[in-house]
Write a protein that binds this DNA or RNA. Structure first.
Lengths: 230, 230
DNA sequence: CCTACCGATCGGTAGG
DNA sequence: CCTACCGATCGGTAGG
């Protein structure tokens, strides 16, 4: 009943000014913040931002209802943290997979394939709670909150453009760069609505099919008409 | 201050039992229900289902807070009505556009083009508030509520399969039927996240680009290798 | 379809 | 990070 009866004599002797003393549960230190972000990502994804209460998030990490606001100014700030965290990992993952493919001398078709596969990892891999939340709850953010994350998004998209541009120049892709990217992203991101990772189609197969669908088959050995004119 | 002071003598004389007398505002009769559906569709789309209160919807049609529940059992029932209404119009629209194309002797490429364009109308035309709500808020429904609407969705998708199957057989589409449909729907439905109807790209142009991206260019006059083997 | 209302829940805060 | 709390809002209902 009386909280002070649980305190050790040493704690009672400590002056109450300055930072509050850490109880064992708090000792996890800096990653309590990360715990909140992870729990928020999972719940926002499962139930949506509006349908998730800050109490749900607190309970998921063993906190009381008011405590998330010690770490974040608002529920929206937590959402921003989820999206930033997600975009940073996504960007790192895409870049690492591209680097590896290029180191192995991949051609542009293989590079596109690698990037599509990497994007599917972003949507469906270990970090799967983060980017789907960003894609689903983007409109919840204020214009100002969007700006910071938009920089990361732009960087992510920028990696696709030169690859798509080269495939277009080779006659393998019949579209404008931006349009091709948006259509690819549409096909990929829409899997969030229907894809069952435990189902019949593996992510590798799915990737192959999307690339096959979108790329024009190479015109035997002869250069494409577009190349001949250039 | 006193509501009864606004009633005409004739109204005051009418007995209070049975159906309440209709004031001029109520005289619109049966389409008050449709008014609620239309307002709900618009608000659900603009703000999302959770962020829209039944009070918002009531106010949008000039009702008081409790009155929507005279027409609908619950907020979710209103959502179901929006989706059903939307899917029925969508289905009718797709079928009418397909019939017209076939009457004019369209080939399969032209038919696909017509269907993609019709789907963009569904997403961005006069009825634009309805299907986007269905796509966005599908998970809000209970399994039981989904079943009825799923039948309409299945009918809508069923129209695509034979067309895609023929294009695959002709070597114009490199994918399985279901996969091709899901990828096409992904590219189309994802426009909800980024397309600006007042922007540079018209829906006709967008349609052309998607069809060009996805269809293999015809192999001159020679039959495709796939056809030769069959 | 309105009036008047209820119980529940929610984001957030003061103070320690 | 907890306790205790506040004002606001919400879906829904009884009764007419």
């Amino acid at each position: 009943m009386n909280a002070s009866s649980n305190r050790s004599p040493a704690e009672l002797a400590r002056p109450r000014r300055g930072r509050p003393p850490k109880t064992p549960e708090q000792r996890a230190d800096g990653n309590r913040r990360q715990d909140l972000i992870n729990a928020a990502a999972r719940l926002f994804r499962q139930k949506g931002f509006d349908a998730t209460s800050t109490r749900d998030i607190a309970a998921a990490v063993g906190m009381r209802s008011g405590s998330p606001f010690y770490h974040f100014d608002s529920k929206q700030a937590l959402l921003v943290a989820v999206m930033e965290d997600g975009m940073q990992s996504a960007l790192r993952w895409l870049e690492s997979r591209m680097s590896e493919a290029q180191r192995e001398g991949a051609n542009d078709e293989q590079l596109l394939q690698t990037m599509v596969r990497a994007h599917m990892d972003v949507l469906w891999g270990d970090h799967r709670d983060f980017i789907p939340v960003m894609l689903q709850e983007w409109q919840v953010l204020s214009a100002e909150q969007r700006r910071g994350i938009a920089e990361l998004k732009d960087a992510y998209e920028a990696h696709w453009n030169p690859v798509l541009a080269r495939l277009i120049a080779q006659g393998r892709l019949r579209a404008e760069v931006t349009m091709a990217r948006l259509m690819l992203f549409g096909a990929m991101n829409w899997t969030l609505k229907w894809y069952d990772p435990s189902g019949r189609v593996a992510l590798d197969d799915w990737t192959d099919q999307l690339v096959a669908l979108v790329l024009q088959q190479p015109r035997d050995s002869a250069p494409s008409p577009a190349m001949r004119q250039a």
